[in-house]
């Protein structure tokens, strides 16, 4: 399998180089999307299927569409590189030195690490059997809470910037069978990932990203929910995830005296409830980050 790894990483580096150097916008974005596929394969090879699921959903569903939208609005690449040849060489030397330092710092660290035995020892008490979900929503739930806050801040920023709303072209009738079969199946997959997140790879982020991808497909097919009221509802849903998480943290504090320390015996119920609301909230947030909020009144 070492040959697989080498070819995979070479292809990944080639795709990333193409994405970052090609002059044609579409070519650059297409190479970036293919790089996303290869990155998900790399996470699989590194025995991280949870990360691979999230990367697959976001790389295939959200990032490519986001870049295509912005490329369409910003227009073709103009302007040359910063500085001349000598500046480029100096930057290459600096970047190469930094990446060599990174390699040197991390490649030698394959000694015994404290975390896996700790996680394994406490997995029983966390209420779930998927170690990644246990870390995300029990042992380091504080980090995850802050991450949801970052999502909410990004959403607020996009709402304040108020980009022009996405108006897809009419695509004819043949997208309707596609939307009627693929989107419900995507929702089914999202529910499956959410449900099995407690015991197997999956969870709120993966499910939310898949759900967002399905919603983007609906919007792009021109049959997505539009209208001011629905967008406002989605906005509230997007911000509700943070509110639910903070509320759960405070409620858990009141019950057990520890911040985000769930009551003993009921950990799984708490985790599933938080994850379910996070899934909807993440999906609404990602979708709104693509479509933009309601059109600004003074436009």
């Amino acid at each position: 399998m070492i040959a697989f790894d080498i070819v995979l990483t070479l292809g990944l580096l080639a795709c990333a180089a193409m994405a970052l150097t090609l002059r044609d916008r579409t070519a650059s974005i297409a190479a970036f999307v293919v790089a996303g596929l290869l990155i998900a394969l790399s996470w699989v090879r590194l025995a991280a299927p949870d990360v691979a699921l999230a990367e697959a959903a976001i790389g295939a569903g959200v990032t490519g569409a986001l870049f295509l939208r912005s490329a369409r609005r910003i227009g073709p690449i103009t302007g040359g590189p910063v500085g001349g040849m000598s500046a480029s060489i100096a930057a290459a030397l600096g970047a190469g030195g930094l990446s060599a330092a990174l390699f040197w710092a991390f490649a030698g660290t394959s000694g015994p690490v404290p975390y896996p035995p700790l996680v394994a020892a406490n997995l029983e008490a966390s209420g779930v059997t998927n170690p990644v979900t246990a870390v995300l929503l029990n042992f380091r739930a504080w980090d995850t809470l802050l991450e949801i806050a970052v999502l909410a801040v990004a959403l607020a920023l996009v709402v304040m910037l108020g980009p022009a709303p996405v108006v897809p072209r009419a695509l004819g009738e043949l997208v309707l069978p596609f939307a009627r079969i693929v989107v419900p199946l995507a929702i089914l997959v999202a529910g499956h990932l959410l449900w099995q997140g407690a015991t197997a790879p999956g969870g709120a982020f993966q499910a939310g990203a898949v759900l967002a991808g399905g919603m983007l497909a609906l919007v792009l097919a021109g049959i997505g929910p539009a209208g001011e009221r629905i967008v406002r509802g989605a906005l509230l849903l997007g911000l509700a995830g943070l509110a639910v998480f903070v509320g759960a943290a405070l409620a858990a504090e009141g019950l057990t005296g520890r911040f985000l320390g769930y009551p003993a015996g009921a950990e799984k119920a708490w985790i599933i409830a938080i994850e379910a609301s996070l899934t909807l909230s993440i999906a609404a947030t990602l979708c709104l980050l693509f479509t933009g909020p309601v059109r600004r009144p003074h436009q």
């Binding site: 959200v62 991450e147 999502l151 996009v158 990203a209 947030t285 980050l289």
Partner: peptide, 12 residues
């Protein structure tokens, strides 16, 4: 995993 989700929101 956290990084990927933060990354996509920052990108947007």
């Amino acid at each position: 995993l956290t990084g990927i989700v933060v990354l996509v929101s920052v990108t947007a």
